[in-house]
């Protein structure tokens, strides 16, 4: 039973990280930008949902989602587009600045103190399944994750824009030569990553039960580990990396002695360090990539 609980936890946490990692990976793949500000998009999503919580549920969803997408597009247009083509380090610093900007703008508007998150309190109720008492939230998040991951996979695999996105991520010049409009494709990547961020906002805010300006940092950093683990630029790798990180953190929680548990993050980043040095392409090297000369 305990094992089952651990597995469920691992999947749930892993799914959350997988979505973070995908949100980061989508942008990296196409722009070679490690988007630190992705965490703040999650944070903004949490605030949007939380502040609109008094409205009818569907309206909250539509409005907050629209807000997040608009925000992501705004960031792309104002901060990242002018820097396109610069070296990855400049882009990284820029996203760092955007992240800091949004965090502190939130402090300016709503103050630094946490606000309660009250949307859909029903999520906190527990239900009993096979002798396990589980919060409803776990099921909702599991469902959302499956939909989101399958949705992203389908969009990338089946739609013209998705295929174009993958094409541009591999070789921008060839994509252009094939008539791909790169600006549109980049905007599409930001929209997809914003939707993923929104789902994370909903689940994560409900999990921690409050909103704070810096709440996006932790999921970002862990999602970032997952992206590295999967190999920067590989989307299946990013998703897999998310689940691996989820499994590792649940495992560390289970096996580490209590006084070492707080060091989980140190261990995770120690792992990042080792991966970068030993296997810089990540766990999952895309096979087809190797065929390339």
């Amino acid at each position: 039973m305990i094992a089952l609980q651990y597995i469920l936890d691992a999947i749930n946490i892993g799914g959350l990280y997988a979505m973070m990692a995908l949100g980061i990976g989508l942008i990296f793949g196409i722009m070679r930008l490690i988007n630190f500000a992705h965490g703040e998009v999650v944070m903004a999503g949490g605030y949007a949902i939380g502040l609109l919580a008094t409205l009818p549920g569907p309206l909250v969803i539509v409005l907050s989602l629209a807000f997040i997408i608009a925000l992501a597009l705004l960031i792309e247009q104002t901060a990242f587009r002018p820097l396109r083509g610069q070296d990855p380090a400049s882009l990284l610093v820029a996203s760092f600045a955007v992240s800091y900007f949004l965090q502190n703008l939130t402090v300016m508007i709503f103050g630094a103190r946490p606000l309660p998150f009250t949307f859909a309190p029903v999520l906190a109720e527990t239900i009993e399944v096979a002798g396990l008492r589980l919060p409803l939230l776990q099921f909702v998040s599991l469902g959302l994750m499956i939909i989101a991951l399958a949705g992203v996979a389908a969009l990338l695999k089946r739609t013209a824009l998705g295929i174009q996105l993958r094409a541009a991520a591999e070789d921008v010049v060839t994509a252009r030569l094939s008539g791909v409009k790169v600006n549109r494709v980049i905007a599409f990547a930001f929209v997809m990553s914003a939707v993923l961020a929104w789902i994370v906002s909903l689940i994560y805010s409900a999990q921690i039960g409050q909103l704070s300006p810096a709440m996006g940092v932790r999921p970002l950093i862990i999602g970032f580990v997952a992206t590295i683990l999967g190999g920067l630029g590989s989307l299946p790798g990013a998703a897999l990396g998310g689940f691996v990180v989820g499994a590792i953190s649940v495992l560390l929680d289970a096996v580490l002695p209590a006084d070492l548990r707080p060091f989980r993050e140190a261990f995770l980043f120690g792992l990042v360090f080792v991966i970068l040095v030993v296997r810089p392409d990540g766990l999952l090297r895309v096979r087809a990539m190797q065929e390339r000369v």
Partner: peptide, 9 residues
């Protein structure tokens, strides 16, 4: 509060 950081970024 936060204006300093917003301006800096």
């Amino acid at each position: 509060l936060g204006l300093q950081e917003v301006g800096l970024s």
